[in-house]
């Protein structure tokens, strides 16, 4: 009897102990009053009106305007460039000018426009391979394709990293609302379980992926350097096109923005998943990813087929670090 009674008491105590711990973890971040004292600088680019008219987009300048406005309202020092101002040389000069900032600063780079992926075997593009941002001057007027002669005007992930290497601050956020942009969001020592083409491949949970690739991940983990790298959200996988937005004709939501940026802007108000008063890059990613999935699942097959529209999902770069995006 004594043992049964003590066992019952222990069981109750054990459950109370476990529940208290779980509750404490859930509430952990809520309790913190976050005040960010870092100086914050944002470079915001949007290209809608490319040379000629064949590759023009619809809402990318709206995207840049709204992101710039939101960041400025939160204390970021914002420099915005749109259309013909957003050339490769200008973007490079802007980024390299950040070298004078203190190491305490947080830097954000946002781009809304075309992105592309160059296949290793693409004719005429020798020396070019992978994901690229397409600034204003990388498009040839009158062509509705990327032309090899314009390839030097594309911006690669290594270009971006080289330009950023001179900055004293290593707290860098990169947000890309363009097609094929996941090449800018390396998984590092992680595996990104989100497929590079969401419409073609099944999606496995990150946890199932961790179990299935356990040995490989342990080896990658051992090789991780821990050096600070930009924290990146790309709108789409390497094999995906991000959608330039809905004016109400695709789905029931009037966005007037690219789909990714529409939900990224909403994340500023609704993306605080743990209730601590700030939205981190990871929270913004989680909010946009979930919202885009929900939006896509609400489309009819007829709508998808009519627009030749493929599904896409944002991708987040790997690593344990995170930064506050909105507060």
């Amino acid at each position: 009897m004594r043992i049964e009674r003590s066992r019952g008491c222990f069981l109750a105590g054990f459950l109370a102990f476990a529940a208290a711990i779980a509750s404490a973890v859930s509430l952990a971040s809520c309790a913190q009053q976050v005040t960010i004292s870092a100086p914050r600088y944002a470079l915001v680019y949007g290209v809608r009106d490319y040379p000629g008219s064949l590759l023009d987009l619809s809402f990318t300048v709206n995207d840049a305007d709204s992101i710039a406005e939101l960041l400025a309202s939160q204390g970021w020092v914002v420099r915005e460039s749109t259309d013909s101002q957003a050339t490769k040389a200008k973007i490079r000069a802007d980024i390299e000018a950040l070298a004078s900032l203190s190491s305490d600063a947080t830097i954000l780079i946002y781009f809304s426009g075309h992105g592309t992926y160059i296949d290793p075997n693409a004719a005429g593009f020798s020396g070019y391979q992978g994901s690229y941002i397409v600034p204003y001057d990388a498009v040839l007027a009158g062509s509705n394709y990327l032309e090899p002669e314009k390839a030097p005007y594309l911006i690669s992930p290594s270009d971006l990293n080289a330009w950023l290497s001179g900055a004293a601050s290593k707290n860098v956020i990169v947000l890309l609302d363009c097609c094929n942009s996941a090449g800018f969001a390396p998984a590092g020592s992680s595996i990104d379980a989100s497929p590079q083409d969401y419409s073609q491949r099944p999606s496995y949970s990150a946890f199932a992926t961790a179990v299935a690739h356990f040995g490989e991940l342990l080896v990658s983990n051992a090789a991780a350097s821990g050096q600070k790298a930009p924290i990146v959200i790309s709108a789409a996988g390497i094999d995906e096109s991000s959608y330039d937005g809905s004016d109400g004709s695709l789905g029931s939501i009037v966005m007037n923005h690219g789909v990714f940026t529409y939900y990224l802007l909403n994340a500023g108000a609704e993306g605080d998943l743990n209730g601590d008063g700030v939205v981190t890059v990871t929270e913004a990613y989680a909010y946009t990813e979930k919202s885009i999935k929900a939006w896509y699942s609400g489309l009819t097959d007829a709508q998808i087929n009519f627009f030749g529209f493929n599904a896409f999902l944002p991708h987040l770069s790997g690593g344990a670090r995170d930064l506050v995006l909105f507060d």
């Binding site: 992680s190 595996i191 961790a210 990871t282 929270e283 990613y285």
Partner: peptide
């Protein structure tokens, strides 16, 4: 110990000892 993990609310899988 060895742990198969993910970063919560992301699609990123990793493992660590």
């Amino acid at each position: 110990a060895i742990t198969a993990a993910d970063y919560s609310s992301t699609a990123l899988a990793y493992a660590y000892p």
